[in-house]
Write a protein that binds this DNA or RNA. Sequence first.
DNA 1: CTAGGATCCTGTCAGC
DNA 2: TGCTGACAGGATCCTA
Length: 317
Amino acid sequence: MPELPEVETIRRGLNKLILKQKLTKIDILCEKSFLGTPITGTVTAIRRFGKALVLDFNNGHSFIIHLRMTGQLIYDSDGKFTSSGAEPHPARSRYAAGHPSDNFIAALPNKQTRVILHFTNGILYFNDQRKFGFIKPTPTSEVEKDPFICKLAKEPWQMTAQELHARLQKHSNSLIKATILDQTIICGLGNIYADEALFTAGIHPERRSGSLSLEDATRLLEAAKSVMQTSIDSGGSTMATYVKADGTKGDYLDKFAQVFHREGQACYCCGTPIIKIKVAGRGTHICPHCQSSPLSNSQASAYRNSANSRKKAGQNA
DNA sequence: CTAGGATCCTGTCAGC
DNA sequence: TGCTGACAGGATCCTA
């Protein structure tokens, strides 16, 4: 499911593909997925607020786009796209990002296509299996007042450990996993990166937020930044990818997940099988050894870091 | 006010 | 084989 790194990857991708292009026509295939009156115009900026994407147009209007869990944006240039309006684009005619599925390579539109945005040089398909995502036209001046966007907390990079610690104390009785999934407390983490960050920091997801020391909060914040930055650097956990000519798609998460979707497999640090439990109503993956102690020490963290290095070295080989 | 459960939605998969 | 029900989860709404 698209989280902050995936949305940032989409933003960067679309920035190369539709910036300065004119949106000429909109087909709404599902009313629920387009919340407002369709408008057209030229794209002047593509911004991101947490997991929300914003397209600004040259007429004072914007689209707020949220992919929620299963949303996808697939740009198909139909071979007509030219980079910067000059050089022919490489023989890749489709850029797909968001929730990974066969839609990345399937014929479009299809039964999961909810909205079709026609641009001068290509078509952007908004696909969404579960219809939780949406495109919402909003005056550009009102974007930051949107009920969702205005409540967003700072992203990990903008937040200090002291701030995070103070926020955790405000929700001291909540489970730490539920707390860091709350976008009004810290912005950008979803289920995947919450699990990965808690593992990296050696913190059990069922600890009460108030039980975290400033040192714990520091480790957690650093872990959150680290797992998300790694993902952004690799193109949004490789779920966002140019679809190759041979029809293959990205090997979503396989390259860097330490615990997510690895239940039953050996922990990279200690060999203990990863288990899946339910925390705050969410599927949660932990190493019962590395995250068992309420106060994992810096030694464990160092051990994990060295194990991560070994793992990465192995992958690059 | 906080904490936590229900809800939305549809494709997938386990179990019978 | 084909049906049924559980499950997946981001954000919001509702309840205690």
